[in-house]
């Protein structure tokens, strides 16, 4: 089935982004760069997983719920990233420079 194949590709791609997010979290040198990795890679990862699952959803309402969850996480992720970065700046946590 073509939709199964597409779902598989999307889900695996999503997993790769999650892995990249975690690697960034472990490898990047300061909290700001780690935030970059976590926020962007994980949100794209979740987006791909949601897309892959939405193709398999049995009803339109379920697909809608998946989309709603993704939007919610997107909003939360962006706000939290900004809040952590802003607070870290205010509290004087230094930037990593080469």
């Amino acid at each position: 089935m073509p939709s199964d194949l597409l779902s598989t590709v999307l889900l695996i791609a999503g997993g790769i982004f999650f892995l990249a997010g975690t690697l960034g979290l472990l490898r990047f040198p300061d909290v700001y760069t780690r935030l970059h990795a976590l926020t962007k890679a994980d949100n794209v990862g979740l987006g791909l997983v949601v897309a892959g699952l939405a193709l398999q959803a049995e009803s339109l309402a379920t697909a809608g719920k998946l989309l709603l969850i993704w939007l919610l996480v997107l909003l939360a992720g962006a706000s939290v990233a900004h809040l952590v970065a802003a607070t870290a700046r205010q509290r004087g946590i230094k930037l990593w420079k080469q």
């Binding site: 909290v31 994980d42 979740l46 949601v50 992720g77 952590v84 946590i93």
Partner: peptide
């Protein structure tokens, strides 16, 4: 090492646990 790094837990759990739950639901 900083408190800010520990805050990242929220971000990490927020996205990953949601993805795990959605996969298990399906």
């Amino acid at each position: 090492p900083t408190a800010a790094d520990r805050m990242l837990a929220a971000q990490l759990f927020g996205t990953t646990s949601v993805a795990v739950l959605l996969l298990l639901a399906q």
